[in-house]
Design a protein around this nucleic acid. Structure first.
Lengths: 105, 105
DNA sequence: TTCTAACGTAAGAGTGTGCTAACATAGAGA
DNA sequence: TCTCTATGTTAGCACACTCTTACGTTAGAA
């Protein structure tokens, strides 16, 4: 999960994720969306996204077509949700501990 | 938003956030939860969390009490949600463009 | 088979990040 | 006032990260 978050900390990678979210795109076309950096840089970003499973790769001849892996981003979403639910658990635990201490007094 | 994600990319900071999620804690007590690193390291992490608004600080004498800022994490959650909604928009746009091209043929 | 397009990969430079050690500050008591 | 506790800050080291340049690979076209 930590590597997943770190991967999204890079703005170009989240932008790539947006590009391939609803549309399958070849690497070159993705790189064309970033005129400021080299194709190599984008290729390396794609490698990172692939390594953490945020995108899927499909080969077609010499081309490599990428799509976003929605499920993996969904995992991050529910991870954030766990912050809230675990806080409810924690509040419950605190309340119970407080009640026990009052019972003792 | 980028800095917000980068802040959570560090596991000790998310752990700190969990600690102060439902309970106000002084800096020393937070640092005590991390025997492997110096108090100074935790102090620096707290400074980062404070700078992006993920925690609130309250001073009481020489102590500084920290609580999580739930609203800021909620912002990140809805940012992730925007990935899905924007994809719906994008799918709609693609569908409409496709329909127009079919109408032309 | 020889070219070329579409990729990935390796090496190195420059920059950022987390940590420790040492120092600074500010209240609370004695 | 002197001291102790709680805490932040700074300098510097080690490591990780992003980018460019240069090179390697593979599949189709000529």
């Amino acid at each position: 999960m930590e590597t997943l978050i770190k991967t999204l900390g890079e703005p170009k990678r989240t932008e790539i994720l947006r590009l391939v979210w609803a549309e399958e795109l070849p690497a070159t076309e993705i790189a064309d969306h970033f005129p400021s950096v080299t194709r190599s840089a984008i290729s390396q970003h794609l490698a990172v996204l692939r390594s953490v499973g945020l995108v899927n790769e499909r080969r077609e001849g010499t081309r490599r077509l990428y799509t976003a892996n929605h499920a993996e981003l969904a995992r991050l979403r529910s991870y954030l949700d766990s912050f809230w639910t675990s806080s409810l658990d924690r509040l419950r635990d605190l309340a119970e501990a407080d009640q026990r201490s009052q019972e003792r007094s």
